[in-house]
């Protein structure tokens, strides 16, 4: 009963946060000095033409009215029309979102698979030489600027060795029956390889360190000690008892990591010409295409907020010690 209530509360909070973010965005974009359409008014336009263009995007109305229209449209999933493309923002974003999600999830799954295994192994081999070497290396991968890492990988594996294509999601002119057929194709995987590798190298540090410290903590707990006293082999204790229990918080952090990753994708998508949401945001901001920038930003924020909520709920379910007082 209280569980349902709690979920309802969380959902209300989610709506509140989304509203707040949308409002902040609206104010940022509209209170900026200058005409928002300045970059799109051709110098040869007459004043009449300029006025028509302003009216076309609803910019001739008072600010509060624009805000109400904006909120009402948001509720209907209408993010307005792009200045740059003269097309509905929503359609473009929906075209790009799958590419970004595929990139994000596949890199995180690899990062988590690797991180969990190596993290558990480090906990097992604690205090040894491995620890002294691996931990600084892991910290270093997290300290590399992602675009720098991406450029180095691009130079080595694409330009130099020629193993992988340098950008995009498909070979020139290739056609697929559906998005799914594209994602399942070998071509797509070879295009996906380098950006995923870049992101995975960058993000494996978190699950690895988290897994290791959780393991160390769990291994001190009573049931593990019991198992040890019972004389079970060490690897069985580690794998069957400790790892299983240490895994839960790592799993919840996955949801959070999706939120973090999707905002950090921006640079990697740019390096690898990946047609995703992050690159679109950068383009839109550089082209002063406010509706599109706003829409892309909101979509990224929505993913972040939803992932935070999922992590929150998962945490409550998986770890009964936490009470949501």
């Amino acid at each position: 009963m209280s569980g349902m209530r709690q979920i309802a509360g969380r959902l209300a909070q989610l709506v509140f946060v989304l509203w707040a973010v949308a409002t902040i965005l609206f104010l940022m974009f509209r209170l900026m000095p200058g005409n928002p359409l300045a970059a799109y008014i051709d110098p040869t336009f007459t004043e009449e033409q300029q006025r028509i263009l302003m009216a076309r995007f609803g910019l001739d109305r008072p600010l509060w009215e624009q805000y109400l229209i904006y909120l009402a449209n948001l509720l209907r999933g209408d993010l307005g029309d792009s200045f740059f493309y003269r097309q509905p923002v929503f359609d473009r974003i929906m075209e790009l979102l799958p590419n970004t999600l595929v990139l994000t999830f596949s890199s995180l799954i690899i990062a988590y698979g690797f991180g969990i295994v190596v993290g558990a192994w480090l906990a097992w081999a604690r205090g040894g030489l491995a620890e002294r070497i691996v931990i600084p290396v892991v910290l270093t991968t997290r300290a590399m600027p992602e675009f720098w890492l991406g450029m180095v990988l691009l130079a080595i594996f694409s330009f130099w060795l020629g193993w992988f294509p340098a950008g995009g999601t498909r070979p020139p002119g290739a056609e697929y029956d559906s998005l799914l057929a594209l994602y399942a194709s070998r071509d797509f995987l070879s295009h996906l390889a380098l950006p995923v590798l870049t992101l995975a190298i960058y993000s494996q540090g978190l699950p690895l360190l988290l897994m290791r410290s959780n393991m160390l903590e769990v291994m001190r707990e009573d049931f593990v000690t019991m198992a040890r006293i019972k004389g079970l082999p060490r690897w069985r204790v580690v794998v069957l008892h400790a790892a299983r229990n240490a895994l839960l918080p790592v799993a919840t952090s996955f949801a959070i990591a999706v939120g973090y990753q999707i905002q950090g994708n921006v640079v990697v998508e740019t390096v690898f010409s990946w047609p995703g949401l992050g690159r679109e945001l950068v383009n839109a901001v550089s082209a002063s295409d406010y509706p599109l920038a706003q829409g892309a930003f909101l979509m990224i924020a929505a993913v972040v907020v939803v992932m935070n909520l999922i992590a929150d709920l998962l945490y409550g379910i998986l770890d009964p010690r936490v009470s949501h007082a």
């Binding site: 691009l154 340098a166 950008g167 047609p275 690159r279």
Partner: peptide
């Protein structure tokens, strides 16, 4: 093909 940078 859209390739956003000169290096690529």
């Amino acid at each position: 093909r859209i390739v956003p940078n000169a290096e690529a």
